[in-house]
Amino acid sequence: MTDPVSDQTPAANTNAASQTLEWRDGDMPYSTAFGDHFYCQTDGRLECGHVFLAGNGLPARWDEQRSFLIGELGFGTGLNFCETWRQWRQHRKQGSQLHFMSFELYPMRAAEIDRALSHWPEIDVERRALVAAWPEEPRDIVTLALDAETRLSVVCGPAIDGVRQAATGFDAWYLDGFAPSRNGDMWSPELMQFLHDKTVAGGTFATYAAAGFVRRNLQAAGFTVERRKGFAGKREMLCGVK
Rank of each mutant, 00 (worst) to 15 (best):
S118V: 01
A110W: 05
A159P: 11
V155E: 04
F75M: 05
G162W: 06
P121W: 00
V125K: 05
A179I: 02
R115E: 00
P107N: 04
L53H: 00
D124K: 04
E137W: 15
T150R: 06
L58F: 08
A172R: 11
A145R: 15
E47W: 01
G55S: 03
V154E: 09
V142M: 08
S181C: 06
A60P: 06
D147A: 02
A110I: 03
N56G: 09
L73W: 07
A179W: 03
Q94I: 15
L130T: 02
H50A: 10
L73I: 15
P180S: 10
E122K: 10
G177M: 12
A54I: 07
V163H: 04
Q94E: 15
P180Q: 09
S96V: 02
G78L: 08
W88T: 00
D140I: 04
P107G: 05
F100Y: 10
A60Q: 14
Q65K: 13
G162I: 03
G157Q: 08
G55N: 01
C82R: 02
N183T: 08
E72A: 00
P138F: 05
C156D: 06
Q90Y: 01
K93A: 13
D124V: 09
L98R: 00
I123G: 03
C48Q: 02
D171M: 08
T150E: 10
L146E: 03
I70S: 10
V155H: 04
E72R: 00
P121L: 00
I160H: 08
E64M: 10
E149R: 11
E137R: 13
G157T: 09
A145H: 12
C156S: 02
I160T: 14
L130E: 07
V142W: 06
C156I: 13
L73N: 12
L69H: 15
S153I: 11
F103P: 01
T150M: 13
V155Q: 02
V125A: 13
V51F: 00
A132G: 07
W85F: 10
G44T: 07
L146Y: 06
R128C: 12
V142S: 03
W85E: 07
L79G: 01
S96M: 04
S102T: 05
R86A: 00
T168R: 15
M108W: 04
P138R: 06
E149A: 13
A145T: 14
Q65G: 04
Q65W: 15
G44F: 01
E126G: 00
T77P: 03
Q165H: 14
R92T: 07
N80H: 03
L98S: 00
D176S: 10
L46W: 06
E64C: 06
A179D: 02
A172L: 13
H99T: 15
A167I: 06
W173Q: 01
G55P: 07
P158C: 11
V51C: 04
D63E: 15
Y174M: 02
